[in-house]
């Protein structure tokens, strides 16, 4: 579509205004974290009148016992990366097996997988909590990582992709004497990379942002994820100081923002090549 220069300028101005609205809460978080208690509890100014780093200093000294933010970040990183890797591996193998291999009852499995996608998570989440409680694994990494591998989205995405993908290369490799794992690694994997990139980003965001599940299965401060740990601070009587609240929020948010700025182009590219439409 052709636009005049004036039209372009107007569009850019509109976009800039909207962008300002989007950025504002983050700016407010940033500046409030440098305010002292009295000022942060009530002020009409965005910028601090008196800049102070006390909120951050206290977070890393006196509050480390009940608000170990760095530990929460490490937990979250471990869970998000570990869970994503687990999902990608199991889902790829499963989808490959259904789409290309000689799996018994594959139609039944595919039917169950698609049917399960229509059942909302709320039906599963509480009974699953009690399953974990009964085998004594609450407050460990097991419930924080393993259940995500029951996700069927990836199986569905990769299966849909493979179904429409020609088999010529695989057959050639087979005649050359490659086994199934080699074919998966050297032939299939390179071609489904975009799907896997998308699946990884979606899964990563899903695990990183999950709130109810980690809230249920963790009890102790050191097993919390960032999302759940911060929730305890928002609700708790201990953090009555919004400046300190925003300092902890800032620390918890920055790593995710950085990862996101670098990874979002994969998301943008990847969604195109999947069945998400």
């Amino acid at each position: 579509m052709k636009q005049s220069k004036a039209q372009k300028v107007i569009l850019i101005i509109i976009a800039t205004l909207i962008a300002a609205v989007f950025i504002f809460p983050l700016l407010w978080m940033f500046f409030t974290s440098f305010k002292g208690m009295a000022e942060s509890i009530s002020s009409a100014r965005l910028l601090p009148r008196n800049w102070t780093a006390n909120n951050f200093i206290e977070l890393f000294t006196v509050d480390t016992a009940n608000a170990p933010i760095i530990r929460w970040l490490l937990n979250t990183a471990f869970i998000s990366f570990g869970g994503t890797a687990l999902v990608v591996i199991t889902n790829t193998l499963a989808a490959y097996s259904i789409a290309r291999l000689n799996l018994p009852a594959k139609r039944l499995f595919m039917f169950i997988i698609v049917a399960s996608m229509t059942i909302p998570g709320i039906v599963i989440v509480f009974p699953r909590y009690f399953n974990f409680r009964d085998i004594g694994l609450l407050d460990t990494f097991a419930p924080l990582i393993l259940p995500y591998a029951a996700s069927t989205l990836g199986v569905f995405l990769i299966y849909s992709f493979l179904r429409n993908f020609p088999r010529d290369l695989e057959e050639a490799a087979y005649i050359d004497g490659a086994n199934q794992l080699q074919i998966l690694r050297h032939v299939i994997f390179p071609s489904i990379k975009p799907v896997i990139a998308t699946l990884s980003v979606i899964t990563f965001i899903l695990i990183y942002n999950d709130f109810l599940w980690p809230l249920l299965v963790t009890n102790s401060a050191e097993m919390r994820t960032v999302t759940v740990g911060l929730a305890n601070l928002v609700q708790g009587a201990n953090f009555v100081n919004p400046g300190k609240m925003m300092a902890s929020t800032l620390i918890a948010t920055v790593p995710a923002l950085v990862i996101f700025i670098f990874a979002n182009r994969y998301f943008v590219k990847g969604v195109n090549s999947t069945g998400l439409k």
Partner: peptide
């Protein structure tokens, strides 16, 4: 079950290293 149990034990051990009044 075996996998879970193994995972659980390993991780609890790691968790105990950090200080939280525990």
């Amino acid at each position: 079950m075996v996998l879970l149990a193994a995972c659980g034990n390993g991780e609890t051990g790691a968790g105990d290293d950090t200080d939280n009044g525990n």
